[in-house]
């Protein structure tokens, strides 16, 4: 396959994942704003902090409230990671690489593009937010379903999965990093309602709240949450799970091309490292340090994938 097509499908699925992550983040924000009365405004601000684009937001908007944040994350064209920007880029990539996509995958991404464009034409109110988020999540599930149900299990598929897992790992790590201060046991916060709601927010923004409760009998504590989001290999958004899949997809590429690649070594090294890690160790050495290193490594794996498979040259 063409290197440019590999780049196209990799980025198509990164953007699609980003689009969905945004929707999830807003759902968490909305939930918090409904359950917390004292901190209106702040809750929405925490959503922005998680996406690490607060600076850009401040440039465009004067006030941080529900409507400005919702607008910024869903519809703002100047925000390169907004839902509308992401879906636009995902579809642009899809058009570029149409010849490697099944009809089903192409049509589903085309459909989500047109639907979201129509849906996000006008500002989304708090009232219509749940419905909007729902549509975004359902539509991206449709694309994913079409991918799983119709695409050949070959190099094209591997690149699609790589894009998904790299973006997902990046997203989970960033959310944890942006909130690491509240996950660290600080005397004044522990046990207060703010604290718990923030933890809950973190879990909700990666769709892990429900399953965390199943596993931990509703026992919310920083170490448990971190252990879950970083090391639990059953959770499809944990760093461990994503790293394992990045490594697996790269191995599969290496096998089908009968060649060895730097990115394969790097990713399997990363996975093996996470696998033997204990949460106590992470906390001992500093959560922020761990996450920063993780993001740097993830980024260099992504760059190496670009090089190994000749995305651009």
């Amino acid at each position: 396959m063409l290197g440019r097509n590999a780049a196209g499908i990799y980025w198509m699925f990164r953007y699609l994942e980003r689009c969905e992550n945004n929707a999830r983040l807003l759902r968490a924000g909305l939930r918090i704003s409904m359950t917390q009365y004292d901190h209106a405004g702040q809750d929405w601000e925490s959503v922005l902090i998680a996406t690490s684009i607060k600076t850009l937001f401040d440039k465009i908007y004067n006030e941080c409230n529900s409507s400005s944040v919702i607008n910024f994350i869903l519809r703002e064209k100047e925000n390169p990671s907004s839902v509308i920007s992401s879906i636009d880029k995902a579809r642009q990539n899809a058009r570029m690489i149409r010849t490697v996509l099944t009809k089903e995958v192409f049509e589903s991404i085309n459909e989500i593009y047109f639907n979201l464009k129509r849906l996000l034409k006008r500002p989304v109110t708090e009232q219509s937010l749940p419905k909007t988020i729902d549509i975004i999540q359902r539509q991206s599930a449709l694309v994913r379903g079409c991918l799983h149900g119709t695409m050949l299990r070959n190099d094209v598929y591997d690149f699609a999965r790589l894009g998904t897992f790299v973006e997902r790992a990046d997203n989970t790590a960033r959310i944890l990093d942006m909130k690491y201060h509240i996950l660290l046991p600080a005397v004044s916060y522990v046990g207060s309602s703010v604290d718990i709601s923030q933890w809950e927010n973190i879990l909700r923004s990666v769709s892990a709240y429900q399953s965390y409760r199943w596993l931990n009998e509703n026992e919310l504590n920083p170490q448990g949450i971190c252990n879950y989001l970083i090391l639990d290999d059953r959770l499809p958004r944990s760093l461990n799970f994503c790293s394992k899949n990045i490594s697996l997809n790269l191995k599969s590429l290496s096998q089908s091309y009968s060649a060895s690649f730097c990115s394969v070594k790097m990713s399997s090294g990363q996975f093996l490292y996470l696998k033997q890690l204990a949460i106590e160790e992470i906390f001992k050495n500093g959560l922020h340090e761990f996450l920063s290193t993780f993001l740097v490594k993830l980024n260099s794996i992504s760059n190496q994938i670009e090089k190994d498979f000749r995305f651009y040259k």
């Binding site: 063409l2 097509n5 149409r98």
Partner: peptide, 23 residues
């Protein structure tokens, strides 16, 4: 067949070649 653009193509040893993931 592949749909190529200018950026995918190069002249190598007097032939026109396209950049694939495997060279």
């Amino acid at each position: 067949v592949e749909l190529v653009e200018s950026q995918d193509l190069q002249i190598i040893d007097g032939r026109v070649a396209m950049r694939t993931t495997q060279g």
